[in-house]
């Protein structure tokens, strides 16, 4: 029911299927839900391409709004992202202490941190927290504007609502998130250092840093940056789509926020698996035993 409210084409497809076959047949139900899911994905893709096609227009006409959105992003969201990723670094060092301690390789805690931060968790955890803090916020904001008919008002005033609301947010993320993400990496490594050196005493500070810089390459930082930016762009597109196409009052906004969050979690995780295989395959890029 919630699908048919926000996705018009899917409901038409479902009605067609219902007319042709028996609606209570589970196979038909499965087919209908598959069709509506694919329909939503296609609409999100079209919306995302539209956002990218709007970018030159945004740069020419709404650049100040994009800068304002970037400022909001930095001021209100960056601290939350940094604190959470600091705790991820703490957790990674805790695991390194126990796992490497069991095989007598505590001196190599830095290796574990370098792998865990650079190659495995930075982009995915950043993506989850970004989806929760920023993505949910965008979906709720745009959804509220839609149900209070501010989007229609923008159109009446002769503005381009999708470029002004979604395009500026995308441009703001493209401008600000790389810098936020680089600080995020620093916070993760700092969290690992604090837990391993200061709290648990796994290894000495010099030993930790020596191993860390040995096992971390500039290429890793670049790949993590590409990876996280792809995740962030997907999250912004999904949450802007669900916010921009909200309907059905405050409850509809809540439902669409929840749906965007669910899809964002899946997208961030799927990107994690995909990019890990693309960048690293089954090999860990370590300068030992190669």
């Amino acid at each position: 029911m919630s699908n048919s409210r926000s996705v018009g084409g899917a409901s038409a497809a479902r009605e067609r299927i219902n007319q042709e076959g028996n609606a209570s047949d589970p196979l038909d139900k499965l087919a209908a839900s598959t069709v509506s899911g694919l329909d939503t994905l296609g609409k999100i893709a079209i919306f995302g391409f539209g956002m990218f096609a709007d970018l030159p227009f945004v740069v020419r006409h709404y650049f100040s709004e994009a800068i304002r959105q970037a400022g909001i992003l930095v001021v209100s969201s960056s601290v939350v992202l940094w604190v959470f990723t600091l705790t991820i670094g703490l957790e990674a060092a805790l695991l390194a202490h126990y796992i490497l301690g069991n095989v007598g390789a505590q001196d190599y805690a830095g290796m574990f941190i370098a792998f865990a931060v650079m190659q495995a968790t930075s982009a995915s955890t950043f993506g989850w927290i970004f989806a929760a803090k920023v993505g949910c916020g965008y979906a709720a904001e745009l959804g509220t504007m839609r149900i209070t008919e501010e989007v229609d008002a923008l159109r009446v005033m002769g503005m381009h609502p999708r470029a002004y609301l979604a395009g500026t947010r995308l441009l703001a993320c493209l401008l600000a998130v790389p810098f936020i993400f680089v600080v995020t990496l620093t916070m993760m490594l700092a969290g690992g250092w604090v837990m391993a050196v200061q709290i648990l005493g796994t290894t000495s500070s010099g030993g930790f840093l020596d191993v860390l810089w040995t096992f971390m390459t500039p290429l890793d930082v670049l790949l993590a940056l590409v990876w996280s930016m792809a995740t962030v762009v997907a999250i912004v597109v999904v949450s802007c789509y669900f916010g921009y196409n909200a309907s059905g009052g405050p409850v509809g906004v809540g439902t669409n926020t929840a749906r965007s969050m669910a899809l964002n979690l899946i997208v961030a995780s799927a990107f994690t698996g995909l990019f890990y295989q693309v960048f690293f395959g089954m090999n860990v890029a370590f300068p030992i035993a190669n």
Partner: peptide, 13 residues
């Protein structure tokens, strides 16, 4: 998906 990545890393190390 996340376990997939973690396992691949663990296997690599």
């Amino acid at each position: 998906f996340f376990t997939f990545v973690v396992s691949a890393g663990a296997y690599g190390i």
